[in-house]
Design a binder for these strands. Sequence first.
DNA 1: ATTAAAATTTAGACAAATCTAAAAATTTGT
DNA 2: ACAAATTTTTAGATTTGTCTAAATTTTAAT
Lengths: 223, 223
Amino acid sequence: MGKSFLVTRSEENYLKAIFHLGGSEASSIATNAIAEEMQTKPSSVTDMAKKLAEKGLVDYVRYQGVSLTEKGIKTALAIIRKHRLWEVFLVKKLDFTWDEVHEVAEQLEHIKSEKLIDKIDELLDFPKYDPHGDPIPTKNGEFQERDKQLLSELPLHSKGICVGVKDTSTAFLRFLDKNEIALGDSIKVLEREDFDDSMHIQIAERQLHISNQIATNLYVKKE
Amino acid sequence: MGKSFLVTRSEENYLKAIFHLGGSEASSIATNAIAEEMQTKPSSVTDMAKKLAEKGLVDYVRYQGVSLTEKGIKTALAIIRKHRLWEVFLVKKLDFTWDEVHEVAEQLEHIKSEKLIDKIDELLDFPKYDPHGDPIPTKNGEFQERDKQLLSELPLHSKGICVGVKDTSTAFLRFLDKNEIALGDSIKVLEREDFDDSMHIQIAERQLHISNQIATNLYVKKE
DNA sequence: ATTAAAATTTAGACAAATCTAAAAATTTGT
DNA sequence: ACAAATTTTTAGATTTGTCTAAATTTTAAT
């Protein structure tokens, strides 16, 4: 079996970025898009694309961009799995807030030990979702996106359960904390303002007025 | 305050090695000794010595070797603290055996997050010793070596409590596991064989015959 | 269908961390 | 004290991952 041989930390980060940009589907991802995502220069992306292609992790055609191979997808999912499991660990076991976890998980995701991450998985009782509501791939790389929609798309008077966030910036997560909006909360759309698409919602026992910018960054699952 | 600015992973490993070789005392540590400890070449050590000296982490005199500065000691202790706390975590929370922890802890010790390690410390209830019996430095870099001696030096008929190991090789740790010798066990010297310095010991309810090589790698604390 | 704009790649350079081989300094043995 | 052995350093090369600037290819507009 192809014991994943040597994948460097930098290569792992590229694979993750490509995956997040949709590189696991048929479509190719543009050099510029990857450079943007990774906060680096397009020329660096080109160099790395060649390296990853040589290792059989991506398909790369000059001037066309890259897409992940089967092997690349597996590797990317393993990293995402680790990242999300560590996030759960930090929140559940060490009382980190959900805006604090990302930076540390970015480091922890590169720790190489199959036993370690499987034990963490077990310690957490095999969670299916991370603190932002994103699904955690299994050991075999299976994972299903939750059936969810943006709060902004929820019809008037219908109810949903908050299951995730689209924007994971510190600012947004802090806003949610401050307004006591958490995953699992039940949300009902009471009124919608046509003028600016802001809305009145019922959340737990409270009522809240939220802007469209909030509503387009909160995922809910219809009840 | 000198927020430890940038210390690379490689630099951290050198500091740790120098500390282990006694570089925190007045004595200087030879280039060759460090190369041996780090499994690298003396010329690489020279290069790094200059770099560390420039950052004020070691004192370095050409052809004389290096010794840690105050700042270098602090940095080394912070890494050792992290390494040992992670070892405790792996054993206590994830059921790793004590011969499995080192390799993973070597990676985890480089994770940069003060909050993370302090929370791990708290989760473990502020342990004083790691799974091999070595003391864990406090957040302020204080740490005291335990009052201990080698089992081989324990007088005939006297008793001690097993508090640590000198050799931390997988082979030795596995041997101890197989013979059910664990930290905390009470050991009494029943008989000593002058010919080869092997000894009969009473450990818990059992009696055991152990070679001098074992006895010179087990630390006990006199009762 | 050309040309202008945008995206991408190449070429050449740099910093970090390492190595080899040769030179220099120190230590050791007598 | 001086030659031989050992240790240490220097000089120059290599690898990884990055960058800038220039060249090339693709895309978009008229």
